[in-house]
């Protein structure tokens, strides 16, 4: 049973980690706390249903189109329209703007499409697999695999390429990066694009399990938020650790301690982390204060 819960928890946590990484990337580069992060997952999921199930476009093509559209809409457009005018006004206006954006996306989906949950087929068979007394499905392994792939890809990009290093420089200190001749606003745009694309991928992982629904992002966005803070807001590996921890804590506490207070355990961990190690488990203290 423990193994089964472990695999399930990891699979869930891997998706949380994916969403959390984009989240902390936005924070690092532009000091945007994206409360609409969950809707960044919802929208691509609806796009996939629209393209693949309604218009019946071949799956791979639909996937590519979805990633491109959500990159344009949630990456480029969000950066240009919302982030740029507000970025210099401090953290709070952006927080409120993203909350409003979340409300807007959810209600637009209800009005323009449906308030109901939609079925989404799984890419890999949901047939049960057995390992000892544990039963899980190929979907779980697939989720862990894809998430690992994307996260290590991102890690390599940031650490090994020139653009990646510039991105890192901006996230460590925007002003210094500017002095060094790095175009900070370009890098911020890049962060937005990366976030939108990763969120798009994670929506394809989570949609077959959670179904596609206008409010599917609310819980996901919160979990990603928890994950980013627990792991460390300024580190990619922090989001990874945080995501996996949130997934595991949730699964194990619900199974062994209490289903009533399932939601509370993660929060208690979160509060303890905030009070005693605000930079997160793997985070580093931020020396550079933004207004």
């Amino acid at each position: 049973m423990i193994l089964q819960l472990f695999i399930k928890g990891l699979s869930l946590g891997a998706v949380y980690a994916l969403i959390a990484i984009g989240f902390s990337l936005l924070w690092q580069t532009s000091r945007t706390i994206n409360f609409a992060q969950g809707e960044f997952v919802t929208l691509p999921a609806f796009l996939m249903v629209l393209l693949a199930l309604v218009f019946k476009i071949p799956f791979a093509l639909a996937l590519i189109l979805t990633i491109i559209i959500s990159g344009l809409l949630l990456g480029y457009l969000m950066n240009r329209v919302l982030d740029r005018p507000l970025i210099e006004k401090g953290v709070l206006p952006l927080v409120v703007a993203t909350i409003a954006l979340g409300f807007m996306i959810r209600d637009s989906l209800i009005i323009s499409w449906t308030p109901e949950a939609l079925y989404f087929p799984s890419l890999v068979p949901k047939k049960p697999l057995h390992l000892g007394d544990a039963t899980f499905s190929a979907v779980d392994l697939w989720n862990i695999f894809v998430a690992t792939l994307i996260i290590s890809g991102l890690h390599l990009f940031v650490k090994r390429t020139k653009t990646g290093k510039a991105l890192q420089a901006v996230s460590q200190n925007r002003d210094v990066a500017n002095i060094l001749g790095i175009n900070a606003s370009k890098m911020i745009l890049l962060a937005f694009l990366i976030n939108a694309v990763i969120a798009g991928f994670s929506s394809i992982l989570i949609a077959p399990i959670y179904m596609v629904k206008y409010d599917m992002g609310v819980e996901l966005g919160l979990k990603a938020f928890y994950a980013a803070i627990i792991g460390g807001f300024n580190q990619t590996r922090g989001a990874l650790l945080g995501g996996l921890l949130v997934g595991l804590i949730e699964t194990f506490t619900a199974a062994y301690i209490s289903t009533h207070y399932k939601g509370a355990f993660v929060l208690i961990v979160l509060m303890v982390v905030i009070v005693f190690k605000p930079e997160g488990l793997l985070g580093e203290k931020e020396l550079y204060e933004y207004r």
Binding site: L82, L86, P93, V96, A97, A100, F103, M104, D107, I111
Partner: peptide
């Protein structure tokens, strides 16, 4: 939807 949109516009 309009309210949320207005909120964003007001912020900007």
């Amino acid at each position: 939807v309009i309210f949320a949109l207005a909120a964003m516009l007001i912020l900007i």
